[in-house]
Write a protein that binds this DNA or RNA. Structure first.
Lengths: 139, 139
DNA sequence: ACTGTAATGCAACTATGTTGCAAAATTTAT
DNA sequence: ATAAATTTTGCAACATAGTTGCATTACAGT
């Protein structure tokens, strides 16, 4: 497992450090998106706050994770899929936040719809954020 | 002008104070969404930071303004339209952020599309955030 | 104008995020 | 395997955002 994680890091030409391995592994182990605070907590305060911030920054730059605009304005980070490359994110999928359990899912297989804008407006990127109940909480 | 603003405040059963009038007027004068920092600046530091925070909170509660999830995670506030009522926002329109001038527009006349979710998922609210170039910057 | 209620400003505090720099760890080359 | 060069880390300090309690002040209704 750790080997696979480290291979990903090397592929992105990042040096392998305990912090980066742990954080990337965390992402691969979780369903949903993570906040800085959650990462700090789940890594058991082994790593400095600053290290986590910088690690997340680097991961975003290298196309390993992407940020999700959230309604309560805490930055969410989630794994990118294969087609995200360094510098350019293909982040055209839909994000779903459960009102009950507060988990954020990336619904990768659902792509954002085309939305016609008024004259003169040009779309670069479309983010869709749906709030509601997830399959687990909707039973 | 100020009279019209104060009438709105009274309709929402809010007491009329210089701060509330000024801030609500600011919203009615601007095209796009505003951040706390911008409001603080545009009111010329007449009002305490805390007062502005509390005013925005009250306006959101009363359905006068709504928050917009933004990609850079600064909280944006924008005027609600007629059909927003106390406690329940009908915030199903599209938000557009210009990459160049950074203005955020509420495209009220364009409603969010229906998006089919996986089995078990239930939609409560859909937010759409489009980034690109606005009519002014796309000339 | 007076009184009860609500809003304001101040101070202090928490949370979140950033920057510079020395120490430590990782990588690369030998 | 070792040493040099480069990166990363942790610490300290700082910057920005947002919250809370409380005394003072302003507002609304009579």
């Amino acid at each position: 497992m750790t080997d696979a994680i480290n291979t990903i890091l090397k592929k992105s030409s990042l040096s392998v450090t305990p912090g980066r391995s742990a954080i990337l592994q965390l992402f691969h182990q979780s369903d949903g998106a993570l906040t800085h605070a959650v990462i700090e907590e789940k890594t058991g305060d082994q790593f400095d706050r600053v290290t986590i911030y910088r690690t997340l920054q680097v991961f975003v730059e290298k196309g390993l994770i992407h940020t999700i605009p959230s309604p309560d304005n805490s930055i969410l980070y989630a794994l990118c899929k294969e087609d995200c490359s360094e510098g350019h994110h293909h982040d055209n999928h839909i994000h779903f936040i459960c009102d009950k359990c507060n988990t954020t899912y990336c619904l990768d297989h659902i792509t954002t719809p085309y939305i016609a804008l008024p004259n003169g407006f040009k779309t670069n990127q479309t983010d869709v954020l749906i709030k509601g109940l997830c399959a687990q909480c909707n039973l």
